[in-house]
Nucleic acid binder design. Structure first.
Lengths: 345, 345
DNA sequence: CATGTATACTAACTCGTGTTAGTAAAGATT
DNA sequence: AATCTTTACTAACACGAGTTAGTATACATG
């Protein structure tokens, strides 16, 4: 492995000179003759020198690495990471991945990930988390070392660290209003269990939109089904019963997987979508285009969330103490699981 | 930031002693009294010391970090990374993510990613790549520094670096044989453009399986459609014409997205799946469970591929020079887009 | 010729850690 | 009592860089 020392020897100059040439920084008014500079650069090239970021960051006390803590499940994780990645690349930062499945429950793993971030002296951490006590673990490790944290896609907010989320409440309201505008009245919700914070927020959005329109609504018009990939027999009966009882004109779902399951059940129950019933999903995952009919869904700006999260983190790294809470707008992607024109009733 | 020096001062010992206590290594027969050890550990705990992996690896000349180079598109990327992550965690390694979209074409970006791996002195690199010349870029950067590379999910193999892939050829054959066993004769393939290496391999598997069964088959029985997420109008006409002309009993697809598009078109064309026609996908992506009917698909062992890739990389890091080419078995996931029992013809 | 001032470089220190060689003190052996 | 061992520690060097202070040379000024 070629070092600056090797270059210095080969070029017949001192090591600091090499350092000054290569870093391009003439610190303290240090001047370098063009001849020497050329010779050093040529020698470096010839010997195949590659600078050592490790040694460099031990001196500067800074690393250009951020830690990403969080589970890798869910199709959207990748989009968030992609967003972070792009912003990172633009600023010369790198991502160290610390996957922790079960962020909510596995506090040990979370604490370990945080500690590893500290040991690797990351400049900051982006984390996706859900529960309060889990975050305290993070804070205990990172705050002491003054490593800033930004939460992304986290339902709970804290006044000690910034957060970037999609505005799910507004998003669901927009979806409901879209359905109302098309003439639907009996709108129900199918969603993940309401003890999940994100599901609760989306349920509240649904309830609020209905109430604001003066329509009758109650918690009974919300059906909770499991988050498992496959629709269990239990849930299938529950959901079928729910649809038969309520005979909804439209279903606004708490997530895309839920919406896909609803569509599948509709096929089985011979409910024509969107003729007999409209369906809207939530997330805007790529695969929702493959359902039949292709799913109308409320798209969360995952990629942008990642970008903004890094942007905020960078601010904190650079000393900004202010706490931000960014809620990014969702967008309604209209496909074929809802009516195209108004009032095809 | 607390250093060993701070601990030494606070505990009234020398810095090397602290180092020896904390690293647990009594190098050169160095002994430490239990009393001193206890005092040092207590002081370290009290001051909130966190070891500095950066300074550490500058001395040892090793890092416990590997670089992951590759695009993040495609639902399976995440599964591969998950596999790598688990194996990493088990061995105390970390992943530095270097996303490069367009691995095939953007040689610049690839070269830059490779160079950054060198500059961060990663212990090894796992890369997903497709084209020959792109790999040469990688090799030029990494080989000189003796940084081992393992390719994962890469269609082309090279005699200078190890590779882990799924055995797509055998996988497709298994799929075709499954269809044959159920009594189908007229089996066709719909796939991504055949200039993509993975598509070519799967096409060859299809052709081979048909020929081995003594059935007539030709390249005409393969329909190429675009890899874009949405089925273009152009492709839709092409595919519809293909199905009308060939009137296949079954379609074995080159990928899951292709299969999803086939299913969507079947809905439009009122072709009942599986009654009128069976459909098999390739990849085993999670969302294939959501199609109607749920898709029978050939599942690639992405997670295991990631694990094995890291395992091989670790061997190379530890000095193993042998080149491996692992082909992992796929598995047929039978769902409802194919007949359940034999000969329901 | 003596002095001042750019210019171009190097000596020496630093970062936080690992490691080897060397030393002081206590106890064991002859 | 003199010597050897063992025990427990520290001095000193190293890793690969960044950085400050200081020095030698060349040239301009008085």
């Amino acid at each position: 492995m070629v070092t600056m020392k090797d270059i210095a020897n080969a070029a017949g100059v001192s090591r600091p000179t090499v350092s000054q040439v290569l870093s391009g920084q003439r610190a303290g008014g240090v001047q370098i003759s063009t001849e020497t500079r050329k010779r050093v650069l040529e020698t470096a090239e010839r010997l195949g020198y590659r600078r050592n970021e490790i040694a460099r960051s031990i001196k500067t006390g800074k690393t250009n690495v951020i830690g990403i803590i969080g589970g890798l499940q869910g199709g959207y994780s990748l989009d968030i990471i992609t967003g972070i990645a792009e912003a990172c690349a633009a600023s010369g930062y790198f991502m160290k991945l610390l996957p922790v499945n079960n962020l909510e429950n596995d506090t040990d793993a979370l604490g370990q990930a945080a500690r590893q971030c500290v040991e690797h002296r990351v400049a900051g951490v982006i984390c996706r988390s859900l529960k309060e006590h889990a975050l305290d673990t993070l804070r205990a490790e990172l705050d002491a070392m003054h490593i800033p944290i930004v939460l992304v896609d986290s339902s709970s907010h804290h006044d000690w660290c910034s957060r970037v989320v999609s505005d799910d409440f507004a998003g669901i309201k927009e979806g409901v209003e879209f359905l109302l505008k098309q003439g639907h009245r009996k709108i129900v919700q199918v969603t993940s269990p309401l003890n999940l914070e994100y599901a609760r927020i989306r349920a509240d959005g649904y309830l609020a939109a209905m109430r604001e329109s003066g329509l009758p609504v109650s918690e009974d018009m919300i059906c909770e089904i499991d988050t498992m990939l496959e629709l269990s027999d239990n849930d299938k009966h529950k959901l079928a019963g729910f649809l038969k009882t309520n005979k909804p004109a439209a279903v606004i779902c708490g997530s895309d997987p839920v919406a896909m399951k609803v569509l599948m059940l509709c096929h089985e129950m011979k409910i024509a979508v969107p003729d007999d019933m409209s369906v809207i999903g939530f997330a805007g995952l790529d695969y929702t285009i493959f359902s039949s009919p292709p799913l109308t869904t409320i798209k969360q700006p995952f990629c942008e969330m990642g970008e903004k999260a890094f942007e905020l983190l960078l601010r904190h790294i650079n000393g900004d103490q202010k706490i931000y809470d960014l809620k990014l707008k969702t967008s309604l992607v209209i496909r074929d699981s809802t009516w195209k024109a108004k009032g095809k009733m």
